[in-house]
Design a protein around this nucleic acid. Structure first.
Lengths: 115, 115
DNA sequence: ACTAGGTATCGACATCTGTCAATGTATCAG
DNA sequence: CTGATACATTGACAGATGTCGATACCTAGT
């Protein structure tokens, strides 16, 4: 998107309010926000990461490298993207980062998609 | 995705079966397929295109350029992406292409997302 | 047949994205 | 303090993506 300025909003700024796609034409801002979050989901590795975390309530980064077959920096990159989209939450305990999913956020996306 | 081979499967090949993200860890193939479809949705112009068509049942390409502020080739590109994702269906009548959305496909995505 | 209008395709371009090696930072064990 | 461990950040690179102008393809009218 040569013209658009994503700007990497903080996780809090997760509008995603209002009605669904199928009801009324999406406003420009709503479309941008929804596209941003869907973009975070539109990657096989991130989808599998998310489902791995969801299936175990909490997972640390170190346990993701092997099942996802990606290097440590790449895992770190993907968790960051998911956090910025509001889909993942991390908590540092000792040396480990523990991740869990944000089910409300997924629900909001489903709703925006016509749920 | 340097390694992955999207391959641009025909619209029919739209698996997207099985359970949701949040239940069991996504298999590799399922993750690829879901990411492919979500990628088609992860664009503000395509989201607005889809919602424009949905709000009017049927729309021809010529009526999309102005509201979406994009050139005719760009509109054509986006409709193609949405068709390949199984989200849009087109029918040529005379000189015009008439588009409508595939609600079942959207529903399948919501379900895959934990609906 | 010729022309005009609606779409699709092609080529080019700038930007975005996923990936890893190298390096930096924080925390724990001894 | 020292070394090891878990994670984040940086830099670089190849490949994907969104965009448009130019052009080709189809269909309808004349």
């Amino acid at each position: 998107m040569p013209a658009a300025k994503t700007k990497k909003l903080p996780p809090s700024e997760g509008g995603l309010c209002c009605g669904s796609l199928t009801e009324t034409p999406l406003a420009d801002g709503e479309a941008n926000e929804l596209a941003r979050v869907l973009g975070a989901l539109a990657d096989p590795v991130r989808l599998r990461l998310l489902s791995l975390v969801a299936s175990q309530v909490e997972v640390c980064s170190c346990d993701l490298e092997v099942p996802l077959s990606r290097s440590q920096p790449t895992i770190s990159h993907h968790t960051k993207v998911l956090v910025e989209a509001g889909l993942l939450v991390g908590e540092k305990r000792g040396r480990w980062m523990w991740w869990r999913v944000e089910p409300d956020r997924l629900a909001a996306i489903r709703k925006a998609l016509g749920g």
